[in-house]
Simulated scan of single mutants.
Amino acid sequence: MSRKSDTLARALGWVSLALGAAQLAAPRMVNRLSGVDDSRLASTVTRMAGTRELMHAAALLGSRRPGPWTWGRVAGDALDLAVLGRAMANRSGRSARSGRCDRSARRRRRAVAATAAVTGITALDLATALYSSGLGVRRPMRLQASITVNRPREEVYAFWRDLENLPAFMLHLESVRTTGERHSRWRAMVATADVEWAAEILDEQAGELIAWRSVRGSMINTSGSVRFTEGPAGRGTTVHLTLEYRGRGRALGAAVAGMLGEYPQQQVRDDLRRFKQIMETGEVLLAEGSPEGVRLLSRLRQRPAQPVGGRS
């Protein structure tokens, strides 16, 4: 995030350098091109703006982390927009009082064009400032749930460690295929399309923890972990599941909703309930009140139950 925002901030620093130099060297020309009065007062204001732009350039080009300095440009843009707005208002008044309508109209059009250009730069400055501050980045969607399974911890861990078992109770998964000791390939249904991504196990503690994440460059940016602890009063195993999906804005919500249904948090809880049923009974029990999430298609494509650990 910081590398991209810093690169863009430095590019804006070069813009400030060029604009500031022009405003100091030829303020009257800049004013005429912007539709602003070419009076002595206006030229003084333009030189002051040029000095400000050079200060922005020094901060953006000389700092090791220039991104946050972009807020200074945002403040300067607000002043520039106010000056241009005043110029357009003055041009409108003069054209109504004088006979030089054509000349005033041309200057007003220049002011409108300059205002549009500054507005676009302001939007870019603001986006860069927000991005560099971390305010424009959507936080990962984190889903957590836990459940207690009435089976020994080693057995519960072993079943989950065989990642190819996950689609038996995680209905959003079409398949998980092991491709190495710590690598696997996952496939899920998003809307009407299959999405695949590669994943790797980052941390593994036998009988206690499995943590994984999607490989860099995958279609889905996700990670997860599952912890196994002793159940209450030393009976059974408590499973703690955490899933994270990273993305921006509506794209993240749409991707997660497409895989997990309309209520992702509830779907994760339902996944663990199905896991509990498989571990304790060897099958997923379908009943009127069975937690199958909010997607009817999940019911229709439910996989047949498989015996677990020799239990029928």
Rank of each mutant, 00 (worst) to 15 (best):
D6N: 15
A9D: 02
W14E: 00
L17Q: 11
L19M: 07
L24P: 03
A26M: 10
M29E: 15
N31I: 02
R32M: 05
V36E: 05
S39H: 13
S39I: 09
T46A: 13
R47F: 04
S63E: 10
T70R: 05
V74E: 02
V74N: 03
A78I: 07
A78F: 09
A82R: 12
G85C: 00
G93V: 12
S98M: 01
R100W: 00
C101V: 05
C101R: 10
C101I: 06
A105V: 04
R108S: 09
A114T: 12
A116M: 12
A116G: 13
G120M: 12
L126D: 00
S133V: 03
G134Y: 04
T148M: 06
V149S: 13
V149L: 13
V149Y: 13
R151P: 04
Y157P: 01
D162A: 15
A168Y: 11
E174N: 13
V176D: 04
T178W: 02
R182M: 01
M189T: 08
A191Y: 11
A191F: 10
A193L: 05
D194E: 12
W197H: 07
I201F: 11
G207K: 00
E208S: 10
I220T: 05
T222M: 07
T222C: 07
S223E: 05
G236A: 08
L241K: 13
Y245R: 05
G253S: 13
A257V: 09
M259K: 12
M259A: 15
G261D: 00
Q267I: 00
R273A: 10
E280F: 12
A287Y: 14
L296R: 14
R299C: 00
Q302R: 14
P304H: 10
V308I: 11
